[in-house]
Design a protein around this nucleic acid. Structure first.
Lengths: 113, 113
DNA sequence: TGCACATTTGGTATAATAGCCAATTACTGT
DNA sequence: ACAGTAATTGGCTATTATACCAAATGTGCA
């Protein structure tokens, strides 16, 4: 693999990795409509606040969210709503998988219900 | 986070994780046009063939590629070309980041060239 | 059958990730 | 300055990923 390509794929992998965690996906999807404080997100998620803070840090580092202080709190919002497209693409892949599995099942004469 | 959501986000994270590696992204992009044998991919990538084989296994497990024996060799191909959309989305994110950085730079009076 | 080639699997060392707790930092209001 | 709330950081441990080598498996052909 050429060095040029390596750099490119590393950059892409970094973004993918940032999204490759259930909690971080949850966060991104919840920031779709409105920005949230760390505390709000923590309540929704149910992990320790330090854990949530670290997830947010990863998302920020990879240019997916930004933060803004408001008094006592820090609000995070989507920096790049284009990430939401990734959601659809990923769901497409999952749906394709599911469809394939269903076809296999039906070919064996079995069915879901 | 509701249990239902958890399952959903875990499924999505699994797909994202499968793509969250430079070599695997490289593989996916190279299977865009034509299917390739493990040996061919190994030559292009330059890692040990066992390493490449394991990457392919991960992609297969997550419904991104399929394999097919042809005599001595195993050819892999994209199961779900919709993954390629993810590439564009990820590149969008990266471009947004880059643009943001450039704006910051220019605001300081500096510039790339 | 036995050899050559292609791929997968097992084993292992190293590195990266995730989560919690405790300690620190930052801001507000008194 | 001090107490109270919000968030980040550091430290620790458990789990997971990655990459190599070596061994095993599978396939085609003499």
């Amino acid at each position: 693999m050429k060095k040029f390509d390596k750099v490119r794929y590393q950059a892409m992998a970094a973004v993918s990795k940032a999204l490759a965690h259930p909690t971080r996906l949850y966060i991104v999807e919840n920031l779709k409509e409105k920005s949230c404080s760390v505390g709000e997100l923590t309540d929704m998620i149910g992990d320790d606040i330090s854990t949530v803070s670290k997830h947010l840090h990863i998302l920020k580092q990879n240019g997916i969210v930004t933060d803004q202080k408001q008094g006592n709190q820090v609000f995070y919002k989507l920096l790049c709503p284009c990430v939401l497209n990734i959601f659809n693409c990923v769901l497409d892949v999952i749906q394709t998988n599911t469809t394939t599995s269903l076809n296999l099942l039906s070919r064996t004469g079995r069915n879901i219900r």
